[in-house]
């Protein structure tokens, strides 16, 4: 029986007097890969920020591997990719950006050496950005930058990885590559991954569990169950047509895109 990695118990969060999360409870076991879906403004980012302890819940309790968020973060257990990084112009090289992401309390005083460089290169390999390692970060395209930021969140190999819409701007092929990578990482290294995404159809093939969030938690469990039309209609407030995509199929995206026209 794997230990609980992230436990969210009856969390209520109010921002500017408005309830954004209402009595949300979630138990993520060690080594599980979770997808969080829900409409814009549904509170997904708020949930992640509450888990890392940036937002204090009005009611309820969060723990990470049995520790308070603050303590877990201090011990370098958490890797986090925010939705809004606001770093498009950060003037260093790609490799530097990834290495900097590996900084923690434990290596704070140690200058970067060849080992950090290797680790950064390996992280860049995962997102297929090795060739651009020495390019200036601002010169990358939006999707390339996003891949580098994903590498940055993973470089320290944290046990708990929280990713807020990591695939924003990343092309479809790379997206699936990335989901594959995350799945592989959690299988090989036992990472626990919590990922916010809007990619409802695709994600169900990669994750172990899905949580559907719109202020309250509408569903948490097997990914198949989340594709139920009535649930999605309830979640998004109108009928949603999900095209379930099979990982082996490379042409589905095109079909899906064509269907819209």
């Amino acid at each position: 029986m794997p230990a609980t990695a992230i436990s969210v118990e009856g969390v209520t969060v109010a921002l500017n007097g408005r309830v954004v999360l209402d009595n949300v409870s979630l138990g993520v076991k060690s080594g599980e890969f979770w997808g969080i879906i829900g409409p814009n403004g549904g509170g997904k980012t708020t949930l992640l920020r509450t888990i890392i302890g940036v937002i204090k819940p009005k009611r309820g309790h969060v723990s990470i591997l049995g520790l308070s968020p603050k303590e877990a973060v201090k011990r370098g257990l958490v890797g986090y990719l925010p939705q809004k990084m606001g770093t498009k112009d950060f003037p260093l090289s790609v490799l530097d950006v990834v290495m900097i992401g590996g900084c923690s309390r434990f290596n704070f005083f140690k200058p970067f050496g060849p080992r950090q460089q290797d680790e950064a290169m390996r992280a860049l390999e995962m997102v297929e950005m090795v060739e651009k390692a020495h390019d200036p970060f601002p010169n990358l395209s939006g999707g390339e930058q996003q891949r580098v930021l994903i590498a940055m969140a993973l470089v320290s190999q944290p046990q708990i990885v929280l990713l807020d819409e990591p695939s924003t701007g990343v092309d479809v092929v790379a997206q699936e590559g990335f989901y594959e990578v995350m799945k592989g990482l959690k299988e090989r290294l036992g990472f626990t991954v919590l990922m916010v995404t809007h990619d409802v159809g695709v994600i169900s093939h990669f994750v172990d569990r899905i949580a559907c969030l719109n202020v309250t938690l509408h569903y948490a469990g097997d990914p198949r169950g989340a594709l139920d039309c009535r649930l999605l209609e309830e979640l998004y407030g109108e009928p949603v047509d999900v095209f379930v995509h099979h990982p082996q199929c490379k042409g589905c995206h095109i079909v899906r895109d064509l269907k819209k026209w």
Binding site: I52, V54, G79, G86, F90, V97, C103, S104, M152, A153
Partner: peptide, 12 residues
């Protein structure tokens, strides 16, 4: 400088 929230989650 890159991102304060990320720096916080690295325990800095």
């Amino acid at each position: 400088a890159l991102n304060e929230e990320v720096a916080y989650t690295r325990g800095l």
